[in-house]
Design a protein around this nucleic acid. Structure first.
Length: 430
RNA sequence: GGAGACGUGGCCGAGUGGUCGAAGGCACACCCCUGCUAAGGGUGCAUACCGGCAACGGUAUCGAGGGUUCGAAUCCCUUCGUCUCCGCCA
């Protein structure tokens, strides 16, 4: 959601920023609509005031026993009321129109976000870790013998359909170990607040973080009207929905491990093999609520938190600064972490860390009271995966695979696996 | 599923037809007083739109929408939300 005042005051800057998102200029349309809206509000208010005055005078006339005057004013009032209804309807209609229009416009990219129309425009910031050299052809995760023993796509399909999986034995244990490790690290080393939230939310919350109104087809809705969260960003961020918090309580840093649900509506045929892209997956999500002046530093901090997980798991990755055309709608700036998948011989996204500025806060009406005094202002919100658990499982499997079909697991996970360190080719954890 | 209660300003909480944008308290800001990490006194402190350099003024807003009425925070209806009791279930 955008500040209509900002659009009014600097329409060129607004349009220029939209252009970076491959969008046509909209400032003129918005400003014209806003003008109409304000005129309509004024007209409606003037009419209301008139009718109210007539009503007041009529009441007085009646109290004075002046029936003639009462009836005259009453007629006046009735007419005024009819006019008021029409004008108010118009004002409300225009207000809704403007609001709907603004809700559908994505956030404006920060100045340091590179130009670019799509993924190809993203800028690599650094590479961390060195991909292993294999003396055999590395397999994709679903072909590695150690994984095959406990990763049952047929069972997933039987239960639920395509893009579902059943994990058993060592795979389930490893998956759980990963999530636990991430959570512990973020809580104990990074100081985030462990949080458990619902995964079914009201529509209002999906509007707040920007999944709605435009991307409803990407998520699932229950017959009772709840939405299944596509990410815990929705719940963690909306924790401050409608609130005015003290600046002293900022930053608020949350981390949650939840199920995520996505329809993957636009990705039919993509990544159909393996568990890279599922309708249901687990993710450890970080969310920060900050004062405006702190969000840039927080973005770096949060990126560091996500990178620390990959570092600890000894997984090679690269850090990408997304270009304007490839960012999600709510983001001001997004950093992606792409993990090396030897089986695919490529880097794949495993984390996405975004600062959303006041965009979501304005939608949620989430404000803070500045410590220095003054009126409440919108908070800034940030979110980042830390990390996608399923994809992390894939990365650990592909990077740790051995010629004999076994997988050697990173040392930091051993405590979470009862001290064991390897999954054999037959799927045994030893 | 059955029965009921409630929804007021950052928070708590008065207010059952007009003089209420709304008592009082808390929190917050400034000032005064006070020999001290406390208490007391004073003032200010909602949002939106419009006008104004500003001080300030105007209009609207008491979950939302509709209705009754000359007039509604107050009455009626609908809707959303919260809570309580009973039942059921993890």
């Amino acid at each position: 959601m955008h500040d209509i005042r900002m659009i009014r005051e600097t329409p060129e800057a607004f349009d220029a920023a939209l252009a970076r998102r491959n969008l046509a200029p909209m400032a003129d349309t918005i400003i014209a609509l806003d003008m109409d809206r304000r005129r309509a509000i004024m007209a409606a208010e003037a009419a209301t005031a008139e009718a109210n005055q007539a009503a007041k005078d009529a009441g007085r006339a009646r109290a004075n026993g002046d029936d003639a005057e009462f009836n005259r004013l009453r007629t006046l009032m009735t007419e005024g009321k009819a006019r008021t209804a029409t004008l108010t309807d118009r004002a409300r209609d225009l207000d809704t129109q403007l609001n709907d229009l603004l809700l559908g416009i994505p956030n404006l990219p920060a100045a340091d976000v590179p130009d670019g129309a799509n993924e190809a425009g993203n800028v690599e910031q650094k590479r961390t870790g060195t991909p292993r050299t294999f003396d055999f052809a590395p397999l994709e995760h679903f072909d590695i013998p150690a994984a095959r023993a406990g990763m049952d796509f047929a069972a997933g399909a039987k239960l639920s359909g395509s893009r579902f999986v059943v994990l058993t034995g060592a795979m389930a244990r490893l998956h759980r170990a990963l999530a636990q490790f991430m959570l512990d690290t973020h809580v104990d080393k990074h100081g985030l607040t462990e949080t458990i939230t619902p995964v079914l939310v009201r529509e209002e919350m999906m509007l707040g973080t920007g999944q709605l109104p435009k991307f409803g087809e990407d998520s699932y809705q229950t017959t009772t009207g709840w939405w299944l969260i596509p990410t815990a960003e929705v719940t963690l961020t909306n924790l401050v929905h409608g609130d005015v918090v003290d600046e002293a309580t900022l930053p608020r840093r949350h981390v949650a491990h939840t199920q995520c649900f996505r329809s993957e509506a636009g990705s039919a045929g993509r990544d159909t093999s393996g568990m890279l892209r599922q309708h249901q997956f687990e993710k450890v999500e970080m969310v920060s609520i900050t004062a405006p002046q702190d969000s840039d530093a927080e973005h770096l901090r949060m990126t560091g938190c996500a990178e620390a997980i990959l570092d600890a798991l000894e997984l090679p990755y690269r850090t990408m600064l997304l270009c304007a055309g490839d960012m999600g709608a709510s983001a001001v700036r997004t950093t992606d972490l792409e993990v090396w998948l030897p089986g695919q011989d490529t880097y794949r996204e495993i984390s996405s860390i975004s600062t959303c500025g006041a965009y979501q806060a304005r939608r949620m009406n989430a404000r803070y009271k500045p410590a220095a005094g003054g009126k409440p202002e919108f908070v800034h919100t940030l979110n980042g995966s830390g990390l996608a658990v399923g994809r992390c499982l894939i990365a650990v499997l592909e990077n740790g695979q051995q010629a004999d079909g076994s997988v050697v697991l990173p040392a930091v996970l051993h405590p979470y696996l009862g001290g064991r360190s390897t999954i054999t080719a037959t799927g045994e954890l030893i």
